[in-house]
């Protein structure tokens, strides 16, 4: 297992490198965007004098490189600066929102991942049956409409027509955990529908892909029952692509849910990031992007470790 620890360390090192590259890319992309924070904040009310005054106050009149290096110096010591728009510390602006996003993602993942994998195994077992077709048509249809539209439909049926759940998921501080679960049920359900199809189909595909392998043939000839063939023999070798897709979808649950946040009025970090981009609020964009990137890198690392642990050949490289 020493090899694995070494690998993890190496990958974490790469992760830091990735974060650095991402921060450079984001910085210059924001620089290249037409307009700057002064013009964006003043909007329709911008005049040359007020824009110049605001630039000077924010220090935007200095060269981009210097500003980046200054920011980097702060970031290395854990200081992500203050929002160019509100003047509040960046972590105060996005901290609670990130926690909200994590909560919603975890809520959806706890339902979606086991559901998708179990469903994938069942449809692989019953491949080409009516159940297989129906499950596929249902999950595919659910990812065929834009997710905000899916949200609208769920609201219509589960909040307006049959008032089971609240239509808007705005949070307040004094909610109990179960109230929280009830409030955020519809956005979580929307996300479950959005990510289930991908994971289920990958599970099904990787298992079916292995069913013609000689060792599976062998097991079958020995008279092992079909479900046991799949769970005992096929699944362990199918994990790599499945874990990969699970990691991808978990990352999506955290980084890709802006539209769901908007539809359900959920105070997550996605909306904050889009707002910050539109205001050219570089420190906030940068911090939020790095949080996303960090989450993604960690999930990826977990997926790779998972793939190694589940594949005996990779575990003991020759």
């Amino acid at each position: 297992m020493g090899d694995l620890a070494q690998l993890v360390l190496k990958r974490l090192g790469y992760g830091l490198l990735t974060l650095l590259v991402v921060s450079i890319l984001i910085f210059f992309a924001v620089e290249l965007l037409p307009g700057d924070v002064a013009e964006a904040v003043l909007g329709q009310g911008a005049t040359p004098e007020t824009v110049a005054a605001m630039r000077e106050q924010l220090g935007l009149d200095r060269p981009a490189i210097i500003r980046y290096v200054e920011w980097l110096g702060g970031a290395v010591t854990g200081d992500f600066g203050i929002s160019a728009v509100s003047g509040d510390p960046v972590m105060q602006v996005i901290g609670t929102r990130f926690v909200n996003t994590l909560f919603l993602a975890a809520y959806a993942a706890v339902i979606a991942v086991p559901f998708a994998i179990v469903l994938g195994i069942i449809v692989a077992l019953l491949r080409n049956s009516v159940f297989d077709r129906v499950a596929n048509v249902a999950t595919l249809t659910s990812i065929s409409s834009p997710e905000f539209f899916l949200g609208y439909i769920l609201i219509l049926f589960l909040a307006v027509k049959v008032p089971l759940f609240p239509a808007i998921a705005s949070l307040s501080g004094d909610m109990s955990f179960f109230q929280l679960l009830e409030r955020t049920f519809l956005p979580a359900l929307t996300l479950v529908l959005v990510v289930t199809a991908h994971m289920m189909r990958m599970t099904r595909a990787s298992i079916i892909n292995l069913l013609a392998s000689p060792y599976i043939e062998m097991a079958r000839l020995k008279g092992v029952p079909p479900w046991k063939v799949i769970v005992r023999h096929a699944l362990p070798n199918a994990w790599a692509p499945i874990i990969n897709v699970v990691a991808l979808n978990l990352a999506y649950l955290i980084t890709g849910v802006v539209l769901v946040e908007v539809v359900f009025v959920y105070p997550g970090i996605g909306q904050a990031l889009v707002d910050a981009v539109s205001k050219r609020d570089f420190p906030v964009v940068q911090a939020a992007s790095l949080i996303f990137a960090g989450t993604f890198i960690l999930l990826n690392l977990a997926a790779d470790i998972g793939a190694i642990l589940t594949n005996p050949r990779l575990r003991h490289p020759k």
């Binding site: 990735t18 890319l25 965007l33 890709g256 889009v274 890198i297």
Partner: peptide, 21 residues
């Protein structure tokens, strides 16, 4: 690493930045 960098930027934000530029 290249793939990591591209993927670690959320797709909508990536598209927003690229298309605006």
């Amino acid at each position: 690493r290249v793939a990591d960098v591209i993927m670690s930027i959320p797709s909508l934000i990536f598209a927003l930045l690229m298309l605006s530029i």
